[in-house]
Design a protein around this nucleic acid. Structure first.
Length: 576
RNA sequence: GCGCCCGUAGCUCAAUUGGAUAGAGCGUCAGCCUCCGGAGCUGAAGGUUACAGGUUCGAUUCCUGUCGGGCGCACCA
């Protein structure tokens, strides 16, 4: 519908002699929140009034006269307020919409807006050194929904998990596993001072083949074996937990691949060739603000390191890419990884990071620009932290004490549907309070059930109709008599635009918001309009409207990976 | 000290990349099932959008400052 509107207005602009490529590119439409303002609106007459040299209302009035019906969609156009152009659906279009929705089925809501542009969403990417926490759970829900949204809106999107399997954290993990195995057989191999203390490593040690592990414990290069064992089991564990959560990635990309293929050293060479690399004990490029920091610290400046000129590309100082001892910092493989993404043909990369990495956004963006990638290649979304509550009381999460709620525990307790809906429901950039008690409650405080109930209620109504031999209408559009019917159809009509907007803005939370509103609209309709009645014709048309609503709810829930049950099991009444 | 994110009804949050009269849910109060699932619906009360300026036809949204909360701050990832 957005496309049809744009074409109609573009033609009117052309006819009025006001068209230009720059203006057409900025031409946009929105759905007004106030129903009396129509079904669609655009403010562009106000935006161009100055440069055209005419009052906005005069431009709007001229265009309103020239705009056609946009392929049967638009019933009326009016000029309102300071120069808004408001469009209203025609009755015939609204009446035909339920049938259109059912004909499009799972594709209703999709568009080609992304024009097939390739885009890679990297998310979760939790270090394989311990169980995933609730922030990973949130990132998993948001990331998976974002990928689904981008695909629905016409992008060629893929989801990827970056496995940090090359740093010294993984070495430490292997050492910790060796220590736990030694402990199991009564051997002497102390846990490293910075080692991982969680109970999961003891469990993991128990699954090792005893003979093999004994041999490797004694072998001079046995550390590598423990490292690989620990890594593979941790990654498999992550894959299992995320799978149970309904989050699947197109690829698990390993950092070690970049080292093995020479991509890391190749990236350094490429940066060098662009004159972005120098060796020094101190950074050459430093902002005034960071200057005091550099002077304040003295420990790091013993020997020459290799620096990258990120200062000048938006970072506040240059950064070390190779340490003075010759080992690369984390930054260099990160650059190599993003270079690899670009070379695989992705035009854009979206990364979901935790709040503790937000300062790193400027550094990596600057580094990629220094490498010559497009300025808009990387987009980082910060997924804010989660405050876990239980009936209003904060759940303390301290890793040391081991009271740490994992993704698995969360899914086990509230279910994947509930967890995913709650995480996607709030904008990713805002801190989130997640109340475990509330999520478990199966009543009207819980929006997941509210939406699922609307779907199940539609299904129950259709079952009821079928018992009387009434199936949803399949022929010509029926009249929309009651205002509640019209309101519901209007709401369903907005779904493609909600999907498009959520994808363009990278705001998955708009989907659950829409679903809650749609469910409310359906419940209102259900109360006001008897669906299965003595009038078979009317009954079949209303059953079709139920079916169309279910389709939209299902499509929206599917974007979030949440199920749309045909029936909800009633909670057993505790009263006898 | 510097940087980034956040601040909206008693609580949790929306508000369509600057739009028209700031909306939902919960909680509170008052109503609605002889009828398709009451896990529902209707109504009431609740606001100086933290505060002070600025930009313009128009600001919850953008800019500056103040206050409050969170996170980060040279060869750890």
């Amino acid at each position: 519908m957005w496309n049809e509107l744009k074409a109609a207005v573009a033609a009117a602009l052309e006819a009025a002699g006001l068209a230009s490529p720059e203006r057409l590119a900025r031409l946009d439409f929105a759905i007004p929140r106030e129903p009396s303002h129509g079904d669609w609106t655009t403010n562009f007459c106000m935006l161009f009034a100055k440069e055209v040299g005419r009052p906005p209302r005069a431009i709007a009035e001229e265009l309103a006269r020239r705009i056609g019906d946009a392929g049967g969609i638009v019933g009326s156009v009016e000029v309102a307020g300071p120069g808004f152009l408001n469009f209203r659906y025609g009755d015939a279009f609204l009446a035909s919409l339920p049938a259109r929705i059912l004909a499009e089925g799972v594709r209703f809501g999709n568009s080609d807006f992304g024009a097939g542009e390739r885009i890679l969403v990297e998310y979760v990417s939790a270090n394989p050194t311990g169980p995933m926490n609730v922030v990973s759970a949130r990132a998993g829900a948001v990331g998976a929904t974002l990928v689904a949204l981008l695909r629905a809106a016409g992008w060629d999107a893929a989801g990827e998990f970056y496995v940090n399997d090359a740093g010294n954290q993984v070495d430490l993990l292997g050492e910790s596993l060796a220590a736990r195995f030694a402990e199991r057989i009564g051997g002497d191999r102390p846990l490293p001072p910075e080692g991982y203390q969680g109970a999961y490593l003891r469990e993991l040690a128990d699954t090792l083949s005893e003979t093999e592990a004994r041999t490797q414990l004694a072998a001079p290069d046995g550390a590598k074996w423990f490292r690989d064992q620990a890594l593979e089991r941790m990654v498999a564990w992550q894959q299992r937990d995320l799978g149970a959560y309904g989050v699947a990635f197109d690829r698990w990309f390993r950092e070690s691949e970049l080292h093995a293929s020479g991509a890391v050293s190749g990236t350094l060479a490429a940066l060098e060739a662009r004159g972005m690399i120098y060796r020094a004990t101190h950074p050459e490029g430093v902002s005034e603000a960071a200057q005091s920091r550099v002077k304040g610290e003295e420990g790091a400046a013993a020997a020459e390191a290799t620096w990258l000129r990120t200062f000048g590309f938006g970072d506040d100082m240059d950064r070390v890419v190779v340490r003075s001892d010759g080992r690369p910092t984390y930054l260099l493989p990160d650059i190599a990884y993003h270079r690899d993404k670009r070379e695989r043909g992705f035009r854009r990369a979206i990364n979901l990071w935790g709040p503790d990495h937000h300062a790193y956004v400027a550094t990596l963006s600057a580094a990629l620009e220094a490498l010559g990638l497009e300025r808009d290649f990387l987009q980082v979304l910060i997924v804010q932290q989660v405050n876990l509550l239980r009936d209003g009381q904060e759940v303390k999460m301290s890793k040391r004490a081991g009271e740490f709620v994992t993704l698995r525990e969360l899914v086990d307790e509230v279910g994947a549907d509930c967890a995913r809906f709650f995480f996607v429901m709030r904008s990713a950039s805002a801190h989130l309070d997640f109340d475990l008690g509330l999520a478990l409650r199966q009543n009207d405080e819980n929006p997941v059930f509210y939406v699922q109930y609307a779907h199940a209620r539609g299904a129950a109504t259709r079952r009821h109709g079928a018992e009387r031999g009434l199936e949803p209408a399949s022929g010509a559009p029926g009249p929309l008599g009651a205002p509640e019917e019209v309101a519901l159809v209007r709401k369903l009509a907005t779904f493609p635009e909600v999907v498009r907007g959520a994808a363009v803005m990278r705001e998955p939370h708009r989907i659950p918001t829409f679903l809650i509103e749609t469910a409310a609209e359906f419940h209102r309709f259900y109360h006001a309009c008897r669906v299965v009645s003595d009038d078979p014709d009317l009954s079949r048309h209303r059953l079709r409207l139920c079916a169309a609503t279910q389709q939209v709810l299902r499509n929206g829930l599917a974007l979030m990976g949440v199920s749309a049950p045909e029936r909800l099991e009633r909670e057993a009444e505790s009263t006898p």
